[in-house]
Every structure is written in C-alpha cells, then in structure tokens.
Amino acid sequence: MLDGLLNLLPAELASLIRSLPASVLGGLEEIRIRQSRPLEIGHAGGFAFVTAAGTVSDDPAAGYRPTAELCARLLERITNHSLYAMEEELRRGYVTVPGGHRIGLAGRTVLEGGSVKGLRDIGAFNIRVARDVRGAAARLLPHIADRARRSLMSTLIVAPPQQGKTTMLRDIIRSVSYGSWPMPEARDWPARKVGVVDERSEIAACVRGVPVFDVGPRTDVLDACPKAEGMMMLLRSMSPELLAADEIGRPEDAEAIREAAHAGVPVIATAHASDLQDARGRTAIRGLIDEGTFAAVVELRRRGAATAFRVVRPIPAAREPTGLAGGAGAC
C-alpha cells in the first residue's frame, strides 16, 4: 500500500521517506509537506521531523525543507497533471489518490461570491496513509449485531480524526459482505449485500469503478457520490441489506438514513465527534440518535497502535431486543 503512495511522490521525497527506519515506516500515518518548512511525519500517534539524512528528529531546525519546485512537482503528480480537472476537490480541500490515501491541501483560497471556489498557491500537503486492517472490527461486531434479524443494527461510529473510523467501517463492510461473523451463534448467518456510498473514495478507494481495498464479494460501491443522494440511489437500484457511509453530518444525510432505516435497511455510518455527547451537539445527528434510528453508537479511541471502543445504546430498547446494554473492549 505504501509503495503505491511513494511512487506518487517526487523521487527525492520518496527516497527520503523510504530511508526512514522500518519501525517508523510501519506505523506511518501522515506525511506533512509544507513548502520551505521542515518535513513532518505522523507515526503511531506521535510526530517527528525528517532530516535530510533520512532520520527522524524532534528538532524542527534539523528537518529537511521541501523547495517550492518540489511542491509544484508534487502537486502536479497528485493531480495527474490536471489541476483543471480537480475543481471540486480543490473546493473541498483534499484530493484522494489511487490507493485511497487522502491528501489534504492548504494554500490561498479563491473566493467567488463569498464562498470558497478553490485553492491556489498550494503550499501545504497532508498525506494521510490509508490502512487496511483485516479483523479490525472482529471485537466490535458482536456488540452491534442484530440477532433477531441476523444482521447488524444501525450504528454510528464517532471519533475525532485519525482514530481509525474509516478502517473500522471498511472491516465491518468486509466482514458482513463475506459473512464472516465472529460470534459463535452467528455461524449460519448469511453474508449480506452491502451498499457503500463512498463520497470521498476513502472506504473502497475505487480506481475506475473497481475497489482497490477488499470490501467483500457482495459489496456495491457508489464512488464519489454525495451521501444522501447515493443512499437513495442504492436503496432503489441495488437492493442492499446494509448501507454504509463515511462522515455524515448534513441534514440531507440524516433524511436519507431515516429513509433507509424505515425501509428496513440498517445503516452503518461514521461521524466526526469525540463522543456521544459531542455528536448530539450536531443537529442532524442528534435527531437520528434521539429518535432511535441509530440503535448503537460506537466511540473509538486510539491507544498506541490499538483501537479501543465503547458501545453506547442511546435508547436501550429502541431496536434490538436481545442485545447487551453496553459493552467495551479493545481490538
């Protein structure tokens, strides 16, 4: 996975990253490139600067400083030499490259009628390395299983950025799609058809419509589609038994999730929030939680290399008759 990403970087930058110690590379999460400022990496929850010799240091002054020319070349490569075709991405502030890695961009914004139209003079890149962890959801699945329907119940996964939400969601999708239920009582549960609305191309990392990540044999992916519209499209056309979407939050997302839930299709979604309380602060999500559309809310927390989770039932009796009243664990 990392090799594909490094091939996308200009040669000198790629060789610098490659020369990092294996222990750092193994836990690499972010590569932050800022023009004329020290090159920074995020790994295993911490951060460090990369020196020109390919070692890590806590001292910013020792860091390797990417030149303007290198940044220009990097931008050209991540946009496939086609900045003009990236207007939507520039408006949103990130580009997703093959392999599902998201590259956040910062620079000078271009405004039109008071709203952001795009970016120019891009001088900062944040490359988020996408990870595919098989079995990441194995400990979580028993807590969100809907035993009556032999499927999952509608679940909202909340966590601040960089806690492994998307990785968790991807493994849930994969497990359900393969029918590899980890619970002993679920041995004869069937694999389920999963519909994924992958607005940011992060879950499945589709390249020309074909997922790069293994999201399971019974999974259909609507790539780069707005979530609300995509969920309705999938409901109508692909008869999913489970819907999945990343980073919900807009009122129309909530409406679509409600629609799916009423159609009997559970929805697994993620949202940016530090915990349940925080998530309830967002109007659209609060509605979904309070009316019991989401039968379970999972809070994720990184503990070093592992991810701990806590399952909360906002309305214990909402949907799941036999479930546990709450659970905690780590995976």
């Binding site: 220009a72 931008l75 050209e76 946009t79 030499h81 086609s82 900045l83 003009y84 207007e87 120019r120």
Partner: peptide, 9 residues
C-alpha cells in the same frame, strides 16, 4: 499546461 484552473488553461 495542467497546472492551473480551467479558465487559465
């Protein structure tokens, strides 16, 4: 070529 927005191109 390729390094600016559509109008500029």
């Amino acid at each position: 070529l390729g390094i600016s927005d559509r109008e500029d191109q």
